[in-house]
Amino acid sequence: MKNNIYVYILLMALTVFIIRVLPLTLIRKPIQNLFIRSFLYYVPYVTLSVMTFPAIVRATASPISGIVALILGMIGAYKELGLFKVTLICCISVLLLEMFI
């Protein structure tokens, strides 16, 4: 059975809206519990990391270009080149490498 894409989109939109708006409209005090605060602090880094690797290596036509994009992207990000330049470095490195592979 195939689920309806519009139902997925609606569920996602509603869930994200609630997450973003509830604290802004209802709750005015900061969270007190140290564990929950720390947990929420680390979540973005962990989610993004889990979604990046090994997905980046599997997204490209050849795994080698994916690995090179990952390494160069990490170096660019380490040098704090910013979102746009790091993105560009990853794309161009894959493009150049796959011309020769």
Binding site: P44, T52, S65, G76, G82, L83, V86, T87, I92
Partner: peptide, 14 residues
């Protein structure tokens, strides 16, 4: 193939 890594580039920059 090249453009599909843009998203991961952004994640790395964050």
């Amino acid at each position: 193939s090249a453009l599909s890594v843009a998203l991961y580039g952004m994640f790395l920059a964050i």
